[in-house]
Design a protein around this nucleic acid. Structure first.
Length: 180
DNA sequence: GTACAGATTGAG
DNA sequence: TCAATCTGTACT
């Protein structure tokens, strides 16, 4: 069952946790690529110093962050890696969830850990900027029967944002499934 | 216009 | 430990 708009417009921290166990599906050259989401991070601007939308920063690159929940916010970091985010909450609330890890369902014992690797595997690039996951024919999310227990989900600080200061770099907004 | 650093990764 | 390499931001 494909996830609809009402799922994405819930609070960002809830969506970030609920993404774990959901299926990311990509249609590429008439084939389906799918994986179970195992790692996410929440970014809640404009108060979040680690978010691109901190203090309501608004540029051509991060404009999608202000969209209604359920859209793709994808951008290039370090000049070479794409980061795949999904917007949450309502329009003009710059909140999103970064998808950091996925378990491909077709290949066993192979975990895509890291947002850059994930985008390469799913063939995601800038052309998905602003794509609507509720209606898109080439990328969407589906519910699955997989439900992780609370004891299997670990909360940790987010990765790679030490610049955000003591408070924001330590807050536990990263959600990881420990055993798969 | 120039300088700089970042939500990363893989090689050495 | 470090380079690869694009883009927005904060300067001159």
């Amino acid at each position: 069952m494909r996830l609809k708009r009402d799922f994405f417009i819930q609070s960002t921290l809830k969506v970030a946790q609920d993404f774990l166990g959901k299926l990311l599906v990509r249609k590429y050259q008439n084939k389906l690529i799918a994986g179970i989401i195992t790692e996410t991070e929440a970014y809640i601007g404009p108060k979040d110093k680690a978010a691109h939308s901190y203090k309501n920063r608004f540029t051509k690159r991060n404009i999608a962050e202000y969209f209604l929940g359920g859209f793709c916010y994808i951008y290039l970091v370090y000049g070479m890696h794409w980061q795949f985010n999904i917007t949450t909450s309502l329009a003009n609330k710059p909140e999103c969830v970064l998808i950091r890890g996925v378990l491909p369902i077709s290949e066993k014992n192979f975990l895509l850990n890291g947002p850059g690797k994930l985008c390469r595997y799913f063939n995601l690039d800038g052309s998905f900027f602003g794509e609507d996951l509720v209606f898109s024919k080439r990328i969407w999310l589906e519910d699955s029967k997989i439900k992780f227990k609370k004891s299997e989900i670990k909360r940790t600080p987010r990765i790679g944002i030490d610049y955000a200061g003591k408070y924001w770099s330590k807050i536990k907004w990263r959600f990881v499934v420990e055993k798969i």
